[in-house]
Amino acid sequence: MALQENKTTLEVIPRNEEKIKKIWKTALILLILTSIEFVFAFTLPRGILLYAIFIGLTIWKAKYIMMEFMHLGEEAKPLFYSIIVPLIFLVWLVIALIREGSDIFMMRW
């Protein structure tokens, strides 16, 4: 019975076109960033600069997905920081493993 009552009280709120427009705008930004990566892959010479551009654009895209699609920016600040701050450990992992890899390269070749 309670279920029945619930069903009738659940009211459909009309679309907020502004919000929907923002979602499509974010999608467009993501697609444009991906296209830029795609074009750079064929036009720029391979090297540190190109890799840095790729990683920068990727992190930029990740920011849009997390903030706009996953609504992390709208969560309470303690929740936001408890997700973002632990990622600092990855900085150490990147430095440690890239160094290790280069050292193996030196020993092998």
Binding site: R46, L90, L93, V94, L97, I98, E100, G101, S102, I104, F105, R108, W109
Partner: peptide, 17 residues
């Protein structure tokens, strides 16, 4: 996933391109 991808990077730099 980060561990996987960073391992990829580490193994990759240990080979000549």
């Amino acid at each position: 996933f980060a561990a996987f991808l960073i391992s990829y990077a580490a193994i990759r730099v240990s080979y000549p391109g």
